[in-house]
Nucleic acid binder design. Structure first.
Lengths: 199, 199, 199, 199
DNA sequence: TATGAATGAGGGTTCATTCAT
DNA sequence: GATGAATGAACCCTCATTCAT
């Protein structure tokens, strides 16, 4: 008689909301996007939205978490690749255009928010942690193979590389006419020269 | 009755408001800081504030303009310095701690806003333009002196260096324990290796 | 398929809901307690609750009815007691502490509500009626036995005694340090002196 | 040039709001009366109302405070009256009808709220304190003159008398047809018999 | 029976802005 | 120049209630 709980549907709805929220945040910012906008975007009444999330903060936080883990997922499964720089910059290489990068602009929202909101800051740190360890290991392996300058502190270098990758979407904002492919190559060149062993 | 010669006072008040706004934006974000907060911070009534600025947008825009030009002012007056990398990273070298960098966090607000607001985007582009030209000239001069790799496109390289400098305040957000001095050195090393002529 | 003989279960569930509602009303007030709170307290879904009651008002009304009749039930079965004052104040004497009295606080909610809501006012009047008649009869019997001042209008006196009993839970709110036993004795003394025949 | 602060006008507006709120609370209860209702009643926009009060709670609290102090103000200035009972029940005697008493019904709202809200409870206690001391002094003076039973604890007796006075508005709710004058006399009689010295 | 998805009006509150003085 | 009174739309969120299953 009683309807069974269908957690998959529940989870689907949550994802639907998160995607709608992501679009709104992209268009209007974390604070500028209102619950009622998200509701319209998700074709859902406000009362119902609160059935799935306890508040706006929770939406932002889960969105941030999933967004960041997706953003950095490119690194995984590429550990066997030979060229270290290619692995490190796989995220950039996986993008096809500035439109893709534009989609990343939500990172700025998060960085701005992280400066004032400890919870967002922790989410950011937690997500960076995993990637940083991955990059660090890759660098260490590269050093062992003689492909990476052995004098570099792999921990700090990894952190900086993440920052650089995350800064890439900045370029079109500061330099409207820039070409996507060329800037990608430029970053790669810089990283490669940075890492290669000094003779 | 007619008072004509007090435009200096007028300008002083505007600056006072802009500084108050800057502090509020730093604490609460561009959207999170309200006019009434800014009024309190500037010890001024809302009606009076609107005597100096036509609205919140105008405050944000002028604040952005002045903030960005101040941020990049370090480059000027250092053109005669010998070491190219030092010139290029003078902004970073002028900071003494992450606290100084924290003050730069407002840049994230602006980058986030620039993604959606054309006027802010233009202000950002206009300000970057000047610095980019400056950096570009420095790079060209460096190439002429044989200190910079001649194969690099100076325009694009300059743009990327700005992005890197602007990404620096990201680091403590992603990697809470990082040391300020070491990360500064790491960035410098990377840039130097990137630019030096290939043999 | 047809089940007919489960009206007891139906009634049980209704009581369960009423008890849960009572607890919520006590904690948050008639207007402050929400249906969803009551649902949680009764471990029941909102859809199900509406299977037993047509709405919040109905819950309040039946709760009020049962609460009031329970509150005044003490009077019954004590008619043969000799001392008139003891009968009249049996409700107060049946309480053991202010905790019990606290449980009576819901009466204030009802009195407040009765001031604006005619249906609650009627429920209150109807319940008081029964008790008032009971008290009135007790007083008349007392007058016949010469234990109660014969000049008192028994109807009005009964009404006032109910008000006094109902006002008892007020005391700890107004006089936080008061002792329960002493205030009980004080009320009894007052009532006894009031009722006793004048010589 | 700058307009002077006119604190009297500010205070006037606050009183205007409090009166509007009082009427709304009387009609719909403390929780049932909404800010927007109060705004309509006070002919004022919601934004403006928050210029005078930081929130609904503050309105309730100040209203409660002023209401209670007004309610008990009758006692003052009657200390020289000869008859103790008359002084003690001056509040009841000052009313002319149940309509006057109806206006007191807001007390039930406050009593109900006091059961859950510590701040309201404190306001209630603080206001009762003053009156209780006044009554207590009156009783002590009456004992000295031999008009009041010397065996009564004046503190507790005073507390109970307040409760009785406050319970008076209950009567028409429980007994719709009751006569105002007669019930007033009845209460007075009871109090007088209670207090008079025992021979 | 029983569930929880779904609604949309309304809750208290804050907002950028304008106005009379 | 300067004040703070005044607005009303919009903010996030909760409500009592209904519906499909």
């Amino acid at each position: 008689m009683a309807r069974k709980l269908v957690p998959e549907q529940h989870e689907e709805k949550r994802q639907l909301i998160l995607e709608a929220a992501h679009r709104c945040f992209l268009r209007h910012g974390l604070q500028g996007a209102s619950i009622s906008m998200i509701c319209k975007e998700a074709a859902m009444s406000p009362g119902h939205l609160y059935h799935y999330f306890p508040g706006k903060e929770a939406i932002i936080e889960q969105m941030a978490d999933e967004y960041l883990s997706a953003l950095h997922k490119h690194f995984e499964g590429q550990r066997e690749t030979r060229d270290v720089a290619t692995v490190l910059l796989s995220e950039i290489w996986s993008m096809n255009s500035w439109d893709d990068a534009a989609h990343c602009r939500i990172l700025f929202e998060l960085l701005a928010e992280a400066g004032r909101n400890e919870r967002i800051r922790n989410i950011l740190a937690r997500n960076s942690d995993g990637v940083r360890r991955l990059l660090s290991d890759t660098l260490t392996a590269g050093q062992a193979r003689g492909e990476v300058d052995a004098s570099l502190n792999t921990e700090h270098t990894a952190a900086m590389l993440i920052a650089i990758v995350d800064a890439a979407p900045m370029l079109p904002l500061m330099l409207p006419g820039i070409d996507f492919d060329e800037s990608r190559k430029l970053i790669t060149t810089m990283v490669r020269r940075f890492l290669e062993p000094r003779q």
